[in-house]
Design a binder for these strands. Structure first.
Lengths: 197, 197
DNA sequence: AAATTTTGTTGAACAGTGTTCAATAATGGT
DNA sequence: ACCATTATTGAACACTGTTCAACAAAATTT
């Protein structure tokens, strides 16, 4: 059987990540197997390991793309609207992003990291997104203290994360009969009211 | 090879659940396999399926025990202390409970439910615990409106859940450099201050 | 007490997973 | 034309949840 070299290394790498994203979008995180990815790119499962250390490594690279894509929810927010309305719109976009693609969320936050910590760019990327949130929050609260501004952004995110995390795991209704949108908006309103003082 | 009947059905059932909890505590959620459980109880993997529909069903029964055990964090709270201190102690206990046994948390909240919803007793059990939290919160806030009291308890729990969920997934440091205790206490303080008005 | 039914237990198998590795084909350099 | 490097693969390994025919023990009926 012929085994021709088909793609330069970097192109194959990107093709694999494309396929992985497609599978996550179309079939969910459970369907993301080495053999399934390989099939989509016209290779064999073993080939994945020429390009990636492990499936866990591959997932991290998928997350890199997700984190990059997430930056888009900050662009083209309605300029004229008051800052709290823009915050609400941002929240709406974040939820929509994750609900449109729950498997990306599962890849980002699911699973249990063993020992290894995340690469530096990973932490930096998350921190960047959180910084954007902090800035928007600041426009509402007028908070001048840097540490407090960070803490407020972190607290807001943690609460929203808790709600979405339960929702995507189909467990939100264990905690509340309210739908996700309602819950997160209530959290936002509550925190804004608190932080403004 | 001899295949004697060893245990009455119900005893075997409990022995299996005991073994499952032991494995979760000692070796983590990844080590919880049908064969590992069977080995501990001196049976074969196939026997598990005489007693439980599936591993997923077995997990739900483990969670039943966890939810029952969780009720213990409410007992013997310092009676004399002011209600906000008791709330803080409760929070401390909840975190300790989950940190002492992260695999129980993973079983409770990890994984992705396919279609099936939870049994009724499952929802009721969670709701009961949340009701306890609502009552304690009420002692601090004096909130008279039932709906608002529920909403406050839900919001508090969601935020705490978000933080613990990230922490046990070794991802909290992506969001904040603060340790878990510090973050959750800050959230509690912030919400108490808000709800009290 | 003997025969029969019901129940409990198991070994072996199936299809699937991530991962490794020797063997082979294609490519690039001399 | 030869060689060295690189890319690709099939086959295997150890593992997973799950099923099922075969058999042993217990319970029931005769």
């Amino acid at each position: 059987m012929a085994r021709p070299q088909r793609l330069p290394r970097e192109e194959l790498r990107q093709a694999i990540l494309d396929a992985a994203q497609d599978i996550l979008r179309d079939e969910g995180v459970d369907a993301l197997t080495a053999r399934a990815i390989a099939k989509r790119v016209g290779y064999t499962a073993a080939s994945i390991y020429n390009v990636f250390e492990s499936m866990s490594d591959l997932l991290i690279e998928v997350n890199r793309r997700t984190l990059t894509d997430l930056r888009l929810i900050f662009v083209d927010l309605p300029e004229s609207a008051p800052p709290d309305v823009r915050l609400k719109e941002l929240l709406r976009r974040y939820i929509a992003f994750m609900q449109r693609n729950p498997a990306l969320w599962a890849a980002l936050f699911g699973g249990t990291r063993k020992r290894e910590s995340f690469p530096d760019w990973y932490t930096a990327s998350v921190r960047f997104l959180l910084g954007q949130l902090r800035d928007m929050l600041r426009e509402v609260t007028g908070e001048t203290d840097d540490a407090r501004a960070w803490a407020q952004a972190e607290q807001l995110y943690l609460a929203v994360h808790g709600a979405i995390s339960l929702d995507l795991g189909r467990r939100l209704d264990l905690v509340t009969p309210q739908p996700l949108n309602h819950v997160t908006e209530a959290i936002l309103d509550m925190m804004l009211a608190r932080f403004r003082t």
